[in-house]
Design a protein around this nucleic acid. Structure first.
Length: 209
DNA sequence: ACACGGATACTA
DNA sequence: AGTATCCGTGTC
């Protein structure tokens, strides 16, 4: 259990240049990649894109502090914030392409550190059979399972070590859908999911034909 | 359907 | 200071 990242995976580590592109491209291409976070890891199965350009749902639209964050950090920096007084949200800054913005991580398929993630998510519970599909099936769940909090705000996710992103053996099949849980600019199809994955927060609505 | 709960950025 | 808003989850 808790095996370190394999050598072949290390060679597939995503470098900073990956995040020097626009939010939509990064959000789409991160689907199927592995997010490694210390002793835990999972396959990214759901993301959302937020842009600093004409996106009312982005923090940068109304928060000077978010705009300052974009200005001060390099692409690949973690943007972490507390929402609804309850949950931490993990984003990564993308910067230097046609548009700057963020990718919000909404769900991963857990692959490593399952016991640790389960303990973090259900600290008071006795060991019980939990549906693994629901362990990281939402941005708040994901951050809680990985132990993400304010200390990770601004962290460089491209420095190597036990935290980082890794390309899959082969590209995933990706589906696009509208973003979830937002009150503004909710019609934009900027949510990306691994096709058919049971580990997502909300299944995509069927495509209209 | 609803309670839970804090950071941020307003108004004054 | 007080108020409005917010990219959610679990339980009712």
């Amino acid at each position: 259990m808790n095996q370190p990242i394999q050598d072949h995976a290390v060679s597939r580590r995503i470098e900073r240049g990956f995040f020097q592109r626009d939010p939509l491209t990064c959000s789409r291409e991160l689907i199927g990649c592995t997010l490694a976070w210390k002793h835990c890891a999972g396959i990214i199965v759901e993301t959302e894109a937020y842009s600093t350009i004409n996106d009312e749902a982005s923090h940068t639209f109304v928060r000077p502090s978010a705009r300052a964050f974009v200005a001060k950090h390099r692409p690949g920096a973690a943007y972490v914030y507390f929402n609804y007084g309850v949950h931490w949200m993990l984003n990564v800054l993308v910067k230097g392409g046609s548009e700057d913005g963020f990718v919000l991580f909404r769900a991963i398929e857990p692959t490593r550190g399952l016991h640790l993630m389960t303990r973090r998510r259900f600290p008071e519970s006795a060991p019980a059979i939990r549906p693994i599909q629901a362990l990281c099936s939402g941005p708040g769940k994901l951050a809680a399972a990985l132990g993400v909090d304010s200390r990770d705000h601004g962290r460089d996710l491209c420095r190597g070590g036990s935290i980082g992103f890794f390309l899959p053996e082969q590209p995933a099949s990706v589906v696009a859908d509208v973003r979830i849980g937002i009150s503004k600019a909710a019609h934009l199809p900027w949510r990306f999911l691994a096709a058919g994955s049971p580990f997502v927060s909300v299944k995509p609505r069927p495509a209209v034909s």
